[in-house]
Nucleic acid binder design. Structure first.
Length: 430
RNA sequence: GGAGAGAUGGCCGAGUGGUCGAUGGCACCGGUCUUGAAAACCGGCAUGCGAAAGCAUCGUGGGUUCGAAUCCCACUCUCUCCGCCA
């Protein structure tokens, strides 16, 4: 959520930027609602003040006069509060629809076509045979069983089996070790000229369910059609570890010395994929359920953009170590998402499909999420401010696809990336 | 799942209808004293809204009352015992 004072002071910019993000807002109507809300609030506070004054005068039994006065005030306050509640609800409903403001370097665009390729890395592997898709390779080894998964759970589910499971576990364990290594973070901070701490990440296995109220405060509940709700409960299956990591410190105030706080969470994520019927039905590119290693960071306002850049640097580092070609996408206003101020994607080269596909995303939310979560920091000078939040994919099942397709051999085997070999006990995948 | 107890400021802990945003202690910050430190003493020390006066907040939401941290209801969470179970 944005600060209403910011919206009032920058009404035209907010209107324009919201439209550029594809979330048009009637800012004038919002300001009118705020005016009305403030007016009613002022009136109600004046009556409360009178009530408090009266109550402090009474000791023992109130006089008939005092009783009558009190009853009149009570009735008046009740009317005002009813009107205030209605106005407040309308106001908050509209306020919640205002998206976060994009940073100046976010390209303006009206569709995905407005995204800008910022850089490319790596040599695309040359094969002296026709490279296969990951599902063709997996089929050969019995690594993916979607038919039986459909029998048990329905479409867009899969059993992952055998060598693929070992590869997945190795990849996750390796990535965890990288993120917990202060030397690696120190180097990336220095190489990218970032002015932030080199504190390592804290690994977390979070709950996979999240309450309605908290999910909404994270601004990740919508669109609800893409979430799974637990029947009879105010609980949802989380769609990304970000949702349960970012909300972890709701209603808390940090000391400045404790920031930045960096978590790497491993979680199975659930998505209904509503609106993507027929899209990416083959393989494990788009499932209702996938395992993901996710980075989350809470930081002060002036360090959070560098924090964002660090998370992106880490994504690139992990892919470079795995030697998978990729390109970085600076997503445009239309594509970054409502709570984002900035958002970059990493797209890995998939030789089997002959194109780059999104495997990572990095989101910088400024204080937009923290405002509703009320996650704050007490600065060294005593001032209390909202924290700034960042999240970014470390590694998930899509990078696994990238490994399979980039490391395939003519006979349908998959070579193991060098950095993962120690984690696979020197054995072959199969 | 059954029975019971509880939730107060960073922490501990008073407060069971009338100046309670809340006694006290610890921690923390500033000062006096000291060569320095400790101790002692003095002062400060929640959050939001508001230019301010002030208003709100004692787990959350609702209710009773002229007046609620205190009474009633619902919900959430914690603890104890029993049952069940990775």
């Amino acid at each position: 959520m944005l600060d209403i004072r910011y919206i009032r002071d920058n009404a035209e910019h907010v209107r324009e930027a919201a439209a550029q993000k594809g979330y048009p807002v009637d800012v004038a109507a919002l300001v009118d609602l705020d005016d009305k809300r403030r007016e009613l609030l002022g009136k109600a506070e004046a009556v409360r003040r009178e009530r408090n004054g009266l109550a402090s005068q009474v000791s023992g039994k109130p006089s008939a006069e005092q009783l009558e006065h009190g009853k009149a005030l009570k009735a008046e306050l009740s009317t005002l509060e009813d009107g205030l509640a209605v106005t407040e609800e309308k106001f908050v409903t509209v306020l919640k629809t205002v998206p976060n403001m994009p940073l100046p370097d976010v390209p303006i665009g009206e569709s995905e076509d407005g995204n800008v390729v910022a850089s490319e890395w790596g040599e695309k592997p040359q094969f002296d045979f026709e490279p296969k898709n990951h599902w063709q390779i997996a089929e050969q080894h019995g690594w993916i069983d979607k038919e039986r998964a459909a029998k048990v759970a329905g479409a867009r589910f899969a059993y992952l089996k055998g060598g693929l499971v070992r590869l997945h576990m190795a990849m996750v364990q390796w990535a965890l070790d990288q993120l917990m290594d202060e030397k690696i973070i120190t180097k990336l901070v220095a190489d990218n000229h970032l002015k932030i701490s080199a504190k390592p990440f804290i690994p977390v296995l979070p709950p996979l369910m999240i309450r309605t109220e908290v999910y909404d405060a994270m601004d990740r509940l919508e669109p609800r059609e893409d979430r799974y709700k637990i029947e009879g409960e105010e609980l949802w299956l989380q769609g990304s570890a970000e949702h349960v990591l970012g909300s972890m410190h709701m209603n808390e105030i940090f000391d400045e010395k404790d920031l930045p706080l960096r978590y790497v969470g491993y979680a199975t994520s659930f998505r209904r994929e509503a609106g993507s019927y027929g899209k990416d039905m083959e393989g494990i590119f788009r499932l209702h359920q996938f395992d993901k290693l996710e980075m989350e960071s809470l930081a002060t306002a002036e360090t959070a953009l560098d924090e964002h850049l660090l998370l992106i640097a880490l994504q690139e580092y992990l892919m470079r170590e795995l030697k998978i070609p990729y390109r970085m996408i600076n997503k445009c206003t239309y594509d970054i998402g409502k709570p984002n101020a900035r958002g970059w994607d990493l797209e890995a080269w998939l030789p089997g499909q002959g194109k780059y596909r999104e495997t990572h995303t990095a989101d910088y939310m400024t204080d937009y999420q923290a405002r509703r979560l009320q996650t704050r920091v007490r600065r060294n000078d005593g001032a209390v401010e909202l924290v700034h939040t960042n999240d970014a994919t470390a590694l998930a099942q899509r990078p696994l696809i990238a490994i399979i397709e980039n490391y395939q051999t003519a006979d349908g085997n998959v070579r193991i990336p060098e950095v993962l070999r120690p984690y696979l006990g020197g054995r072959k995948l199969l």
